[in-house]
Design a protein around this nucleic acid. Structure first.
Lengths: 154, 154
DNA sequence: TAAGATAGGCAACCACGTTGTCCATATAGT
DNA sequence: ACTATATGGACAACGTGGTTGCCTATCTTA
């Protein structure tokens, strides 16, 4: 009927928020109280091999300055470090610290647990269908959220 | 398998963003170029009868000051106006202007169109199932996003 | 009527994004 | 080899949307 369409985006957002909030509540319990939604996302984007600010900005679809600031924060709270590239002294390579790796590994486990909870509630088939449908409707590359800020303040 | 759970929140966010981006692209075409994701959401929360800053803040789960600032912006761009309540001169009632109403009506129609596009792509049954599942997994009241900022900058 | 609760606004601050500018270093072209 | 251009990083100023703390005006209640 009329104006039913309004519910869909809202529920998508609510569902996303629920998962993220639960993730971070659990991360806080597991020794990562300072991590914010953005940080996990950015650390995923940094990956095991490291990046640079410019490259990270391109991956995430934000300016190099924004990426740089985020890296500053992550460095300050101990999740990444920066080392100058010997082959190109302009570049500074950003790499996850062991603490950062730990956060990333724990995140993956927690997300799996949360997904399992959804599977319990909805049934594995329904959840698979839901994921398949979302995949159908959303573009391929999950990293380019384009103009983030979508992780908000929390 | 392992670390599959990471995809779900990402797809939820991506899907949400897609819908919102398309909504606002279309709203811009229909004479509302200045409206931002937050604004539509806030206007929905204001509703046809109006509110006050404090009440709006409570509805949205933000401080009254934050609500007040958002109202300032909305007033500046012509979507709401403020009138002092005669029965309680402390209160200022915030109401949608006709322009604001127009934006809200158009949003509803556009969301319906977007939902119809999803139904075309996925089939009505699958979409109904998807919505039902999201409803199962998310709490009742869609307004209390709690600590928004989730609409980001865009 | 005095005391407390409530509405709104102001200021200062934080997080995260943007542009614009600048410097240092690499890389290419003549 | 040397100048010209491109690139990586950082700094500053600004916008937006949050926060807390505080202050004043107005209602409400004991």
């Amino acid at each position: 009927m009329s104006s039913h369409g309004f519910e869909l985006p809202l529920r998508l957002l609510l569902a996303f928020r629920m998962l993220i909030d639960e993730l971070h509540a659990e991360l806080a319990r597991q020794g990562h109280p300072d991590i914010r939604p953005m940080h996990g996302f950015v650390m995923q984007a940094i990956g095991p091999d490291g990046t640079t600010a410019v490259e990270l900005g391109r991956t995430l679809g934000v300016s190099k300055q924004a990426a740089g600031k985020t890296i500053d924060t992550l460095e300050r709270i101990g999740y990444v470090d920066r080392t100058t590239d010997a082959r190109d002294t302009r570049r500074k390579i950003v790499r996850l610290t062991p603490y950062g790796m730990d956060a990333l590994n724990r995140s993956a486990r927690i997300f799996d647990t949360l997904r399992a909870r959804w599977a319990d509630e909805l049934g594995e088939d329904r959840l698979n269908a839901l994921e398949a449908d979302l995949r159908t409707m959303t573009p391929g590359n999950p990293w380019r959220l384009d103009t983030p800020g979508w992780f908000g303040n929390l």
